[in-house]
């Protein structure tokens, strides 16, 4: 049984079907990429996994199972137990994901206390350990979010997910707002989570080069549908769908000759 199994997922706003996904699976210790352009339905899919799509006014049908447990139709109080604790999420703009008026430590401990970390001292210990594992000093807990760089904040987002001991991490364009050298650090961290903690990661991105470097499997989405799904190397080397080929051709590559005339 896979960690996450999406089956026959249909998300609609009124008459408009925005996601129509036959099948998508994420195993433990596996990174699955969900790639496509703006409006292809990537983010709506993640909202459905978090049980948030219907709060946005969407109608959700089909099946989303986490460890065999059906999430669609679960009441909000049950979803709250899963969201954050078992399924964590990191966002594109870490600057917007943190409340600027609270110190990072307060935000961090609040998350741990909400999801049952036991005593305050245990929570503090877990927070410090999680920060060290993303190569940050626990000192940073005393800072405000705006005193930190985007890369540091994104690593803190990951640390919170780690401290909560989540099973599934949804990463929605987590490196798109970061500089390329910092992006490399974050990608390396995500690989570490897969290997050392056996976390399953659903990685949303429009950047096929990043997906190619990071993901074990990739699903290419277009207009709400998965047009191609398979092992990343295979999809990249031998794309079956015309749209996948178009996307791959559009990725700019570092060439020696420079300007072609």
């Amino acid at each position: 049984m896979s960690l996450l199994e999406i089956c026959g997922l249909r998300i609609a706003f009124g008459e408009r079907l925005v996601v129509d996904m036959d099948r998508l699976e994420v195993d433990r210790a596996q990174i699955v990429g969900l790639a496509g352009e703006s409006g292809s339905g990537k983010s709506m899919t993640t909202m459905a996994v978090l049980g948030l799509a219907d709060t946005m006014g969407a109608r959700v049908e089909g099946s989303i199972r986490l460890d065999g447990q059906e999430l669609i139709g679960l009441p909000q109080h049950a979803l709250r137990e899963i969201r954050g604790r078992r399924v964590a999420m990191i966002f594109q703009s870490p600057g917007l994901a943190f409340n600027p008026v609270f110190r990072v430590g307060k935000i961090f401990l609040q998350a741990l206390e909400l999801h049952g970390a036991g005593s305050r001292s245990e929570a503090e210990e877990r927070a410090a350990a999680a920060l060290r594992s993303v190569y940050l000093s626990p000192e940073l807990l005393n800072r405000y979010p705006w005193q930190l760089s985007g890369g540091q904040l994104q690593r803190i987002s990951i640390a919170i997910a780690l401290a909560l001991r989540c099973d599934l991490l949804i990463a929605d364009e987590p490196t798109s707002a970061l500089d390329v050298t910092v992006q490399g650090d974050v990608l390396e961290l995500l690989r570490g989570l897969r290997e050392e903690r056996e976390i399953g990661i659903l990685f949303i991105s429009h950047d096929l080069a990043v997906v190619a470097e990071l993901c074990d499997q990739v699903a290419i989405m277009r207009s709400g549908r998965v047009v191609e799904f398979g092992p990343t190397d295979q999809v990249i080397a031998d794309p079956q769908d015309a749209y996948t080929r178009e996307l791959l051709a559009a990725v700019p590559k570092i060439v020696y000759r420079g300007v072609s005339r």
């Binding site: 760089s149 890369g151 540091q152 500089d179 390329v180 050298t181 992006q183 490399g184 650090d185 990608l187 390396e188 950047d207 096929l208 080069a209 990043v210 190619a212 470097e213 190397d233 990249i236 791959l248 990725v251 590559k253 570092i254």
Partner: peptide
Amino acid sequence: SAVPEVDRAARLARIALAGEP
């Protein structure tokens, strides 16, 4: 070295930089 490449053969060993900008 930090630029992600679709093509496996084009990838370089990443040179990690210490610290933050």
